[in-house]
Design a protein around this nucleic acid. Structure first.
Lengths: 340, 340
DNA sequence: CTGAAAGCGCTTACAG
DNA sequence: CTGAAAGCGCTTACAG
């Protein structure tokens, strides 16, 4: 495709001015007469001139672009985070380039290589499930490209992190079940090799301890992916117990929803016989009957915070010699599934 | 932040070769000896050299970047489309920069201005609800930046479009209800000023006509946004009718789900008394009990198709003098909500 | 198979 | 308030 664009030079020739003057006029520089500015702007409009931003980026070695690596875009949590990132970035004049690692360490690593070529001035990352070593990010670090991790963040690797207070959120969720009168509270948890799910389990335990409830082993079940299907399997196990729980704290909403459905099919009343609390505030939580009590993890705000921190570090004059860990406050949304 | 990167020149000096030779060696050009290539690659690795891709983009005036404008990233349909776009783009060596118009014509228009500066070699767009004129896209057209629209596409504006066969899908969905024995089929539709929802209504009507069913006015209801809440309102109206429908074709899954819930609360059995079909295959459709029969709109494939068409046009040597309209085939997923 | 040179379109330090 | 000049780091047509 042959494109011929108007350049600064063309404009300069047209107006009998120097290219440097044009450049400054377009930047609304102080030290360019109002008259000239107006002339330039008018002519630019007339010729349909827009600055070649690649040339500009190149010259200034600034792309005003941040990269984002997520496992998958079509997971609602990530799409909310990305939305928050885009919102903050847009308002700050940055563009957002997205990549999916699809939970492949190989792809994640290849993406970091693409991002090295200083197309992006900074990178926001949610690690893939396979990722346990961080050499590929160390390389970006060495190139002084600021990084911010969110949700699935590296362990034993100093870095900027945006997280939620999983422990405390789980603690409060469990305590809420205690407050509405549950005496035997079960837990449907995620893989304990993942930090956030471990923290949720710990929070659950801590609430039991505080209220002097014994932890009953057969009421605690860990799943691989916290999937809808796994939730149903665990719910059936709980249902088969001689003495059933009267409350369940689930580490996400999918398992909570499938548990509700399994119980309802078996004529167990929610919340009267079993109260249920989920985690994440997925759209489904406001649709399932009864509506699900859950923890709002403020994914959009996480994205905003990640972008804010990243852009601040990009624009920092001096070398960044510190990392920050920002904890986003969650809130417990109390709905019918736990209201007695 | 002070960054000092190794350049081609540095490499050249180190190796006693010309920068041009290095450049070609890294490109694996024919006409560079194997020996030299190996030497260069080794040294590049050693010095941690990566090509400055901005300089490269600038020189070649190719950014290998495509822009995507969606109303909102956190709508599941769009996140699936974006996922498809990213997948195809990644495999083709392109990056994807995303923007949200948030259904604001002003913001959409501003984004097209950002994209004009040839950061993106092409743009994929789903129009915002406010958008009824297309000057801002005509400008991109004039600059010979290829455009591909999907889902909400412009009317009366020649352009590349990726759409689904809404009419036919609705026709089949309605015919399916007839086949399972429904005699009086209602419709919960979307705003008739939106092409796709009008087409779905037309498909519904056509199926009735084909099977010589009368169209009963009080069985057809149009909503503003096809929201969950509106679905419930319509369902209640249908419930209050002296003679209720025995089947409903809904233009999306949210209204279908809320209709199911309203009926169930009123002791109407789904699908025995009323069979229900939705549209879009949202995750909720496989969770609601009974599982919802719905139209799989293949959002991921739409994204792939959009990226494929766009990249083909970007890489086309000659000027593009034609536009393409690609229709993605949908499929009717028959589940319990309509199985008798 | 390799090199020297020009130039992509800007921006900016310097000069006036 | 404006201009001339250098140069960012590549790529490529040309020459040998």
């Amino acid at each position: 495709m042959n494109k011929k664009r108007t350049t600064l030079k063309d404009l300069a020739k047209e107006l009998g001015l120097a290219a440097s003057t044009i450049s400054r006029a377009l930047d609304d520089h102080t030290g360019i007469s109002q008259e000239t500015k107006e002339k330039v702007l008018k002519k630019a409009e007339e010729l349909g001139f827009t600055r070649n931003s690649i040339a500009s980026s190149f010259r200034k070695s600034k792309t005003l672009t941040i990269g984002v690596i997520v496992p998958r875009i079509d997971i609602h949590f990530h799409s909310l985070v990305i939305s928050g990132i885009e919102e903050y970035a847009y308002k700050s004049g940055y563009n957002v380039t997205i990549f999916q690692s699809r939970d492949s360490i190989k792809r994640e690593s290849k993406i970091t290589k693409i991002l090295q070529n200083k197309m992006s001035e900074g990178v926001i990352i949610c690690l893939g499930t396979e990722t346990t070593s961080y050499e590929h990010f160390e390389k970006l670090n060495r190139m002084k490209i600021p990084l911010v991790f969110y949700d699935r963040v590296p362990t034993g690797f100093e870095a900027n992190k945006i997280i939620i207070n999983d422990y405390e959120s789980a603690f409060k969720a469990t305590e809420h079940l205690i407050e509405v009168g549950c005496k035997r509270i079960a837990h449907i948890g995620g893989s304990q090799s993942t930090g956030i799910f471990k923290a949720r389990f710990e929070g659950y335990k801590a609430a039991l301890v505080k209220h002097k409830f014994p932890m009953e082993k057969n009421l605690v079940h860990f799943t691989k992916d916290l999937s809808y299907e796994e939730g149903a399997l665990v719910a059936k196990k709980l249902l088969a117990l001689k003495s059933r729980p009267d409350g369940i704290f689930c580490s996400n909403d999918y398992t909570a929803v499938s548990a509700i459905q399994v119980f309802q099919k078996n004529m167990v009343k929610i919340p009267q016989e079993i109260a249920i609390v989920g985690f994440s505030n997925y759209p489904i939580s406001k649709i399932i009957e009864p509506h699900l009590t859950t923890v709002n993890d403020r994914a959009f705000e996480m994205g905003m915070a990640a972008a804010r921190l990243l852009i601040r570090q990009i624009e920092e004059e001096e070398d960044i010699i510190q990392t920050e860990i920002i904890t986003i406050k969650t809130e417990l949304l109390i709905r019918e599934s736990s209201t007695r």
